[in-house]
Design a protein around this nucleic acid. Structure first.
Length: 373
RNA sequence: GCUGGAAUCGUCUAGUGGCAAUGACAAGAGACUGUAAAUCUCUCGCCUUCGGGCUUCGUAGGUUCGAGUCCUACUUCCAGCA
């Protein structure tokens, strides 16, 4: 069983430590999205330097290339990528939602490789096997993420997610009792995924089902905007057992999502937003996001964010970063990614500290007022 | 000096009788939430009550219902010959 110690509790919000075979994660924490075993534009050393505690890779992408057997042979994701810290894998469930021409059957999902058109199938069992080979510390159950206003459609997807969860649990346990991977330790952990879309009665049902399964933690999936998220999380997290960690899947591009998530009982987050924003020139500041490519920054010789101690803000000006983007230099995306990832990681770090010392409400108000004001 | 060729939006360019005029770049802005994203979208002559109106393709004339497209002259540039 994954060891999770809760340090402080305030309402649904809590701080704690997830103890993984590759190290501890102090929660709440933002987990860097390393889809293809790399955080785009950043080295693992840069991720360590900016304060990241863990990364999350994607099973679908690693199955396509370089293949999960290769990662197993390399000694697992942490060894292969030289991250060496705690790791998560997403199941590939998101790709069911995001790729075109995906066919869902009770068996699993069939889709075409976006790289070479190969027809592929992923099932709960194959996802578990792939994640076991990749050897991350924490695995996500293979779920059916859907987006619809139709209650029956969402109910169907949720119920399929539950049936698949049972199969994931069985396969996960079977794998753990067999051959060892990831440095000889069969210490890998499984999170169930809660679905149900925008229908809170389905969310409650899904949370009850997930809670009933022998899993180590929970992912909360299928969340697309902050609208209604607080209420949904209150319902779900009041049902999920308190002593297991909860990961809010895919949310964290907007800082308010992280405040709302932590406030309502989520322990970890992952999101591609910060680095994607960065590559596209959209940079976080305490006064909101700015597009550094805008003409008004051409002659702005101030730091992007004076009170930020990331590599970009410590050493360079807005005008310089503007120039790097305008000239399409690779360094633009590196520096911007360092800053955005640092910004979000540290925002969650401060959320954690504020929960511990009882100042969460004032920190949230002060941050949100300034950022969105 | 002669003989060819060429002049179109900031730049390069499409265009051979119905055109406010093609594409790219540049420029201006926007989007992005478990990454098919170093991607995508919009604007890019002037004005507009968004119906449209006005002025454009080196300059000046001409032919034509109609000219960026055809003709004449001029200007500039390029190539070859002197």
């Amino acid at each position: 069983m994954l060891k999770f110690d809760i340090t402080t509790k305030r309402g649904l919000a809590r701080t704690g430590i997830i103890h993984t075979p590759h190290g501890d994660i102090r929660t709440p924490a933002f987990i860097g999205a390393a889809t293809r075993a790399t955080v785009k534009a950043l080295t693992m050393q840069q991720m360590r330097d900016l304060g990241s505690q863990a990364i999350l890779a994607n099973t679908y992408h690693l199955v396509l290339t370089p293949g999960t057997e290769l990662i197993k042979d390399a000694g697992g994701l942490a060894e292969f990528s030289s991250w060496h810290g705690p790791t998560f894998t997403d199941s590939g469930g998101f790709q069911i939602f995001s790729l075109p021409d995906v066919k869902i059957t009770e068996q699993g999902a069939r889709f075409k490789s976006h790289i070479n058109g190969d027809k592929l199938e992923m099932t709960p069992e194959s996802s578990m096997q792939a994640q076991w080979s990749i050897g991350a510390d924490i695995h996500m159950a293979f779920d059916h993420l859907a987006k619809s206003d139709n209650y029956d459609d969402m109910k169907e997807a949720m119920e399929r997610t539950h049936r698949w969860l049972v199969r994931c649990v069985a396969e996960h346990q079977k794998l753990l009792s067999g051959e060892t991977v990831a440095g000889g330790r069969n210490e890998q952990f499984l999170y169930a995924v809660v679905q149900g879309g925008d229908f809170n009665d389905l969310r409650a049902e899904s949370a009850r089902f997930a809670a009933s399964q022998p899993v180590d933690g929970f992912g909360i999936g299928g969340v697309f905007t902050a609208d209604g998220m607080a209420e949904m999380l209150q319902i779900v997290n009041n049902i999920l057992p308190e002593n297991k960690p909860r990961h809010l899947l895919g949310m964290g591009q907007e800082p308010i999502d992280l405040f709302v998530g932590a406030e309502n009982g989520c322990d970890t987050f992952d999101c591609v937003g910060p680095t994607r924003m960065a590559r596209n020139g959209s940079l976080y500041t305490l006064d909101g996001r700015i597009n550094i490519k805008n003409a008004k920054f051409k002659n702005d010789f101030t730091p992007l964010m004076p009170d930020c101690d990331c590599e970009l803000c410590r050493n360079y000006t807005r005008a310089y970063l503007h120039h790097l983007f305008r000239t399409d230099e690779i360094t633009a995306k590196i520096l911007a990614s360092i800053h955005n990832e640092h910004f979000i990681v540290h925002t969650v770090d401060k959320i954690r500290e504020s929960i511990d010392d009882g100042t969460f409400d004032s920190y949230k108000k002060q941050f949100i007022d300034r950022y969105y004001g």
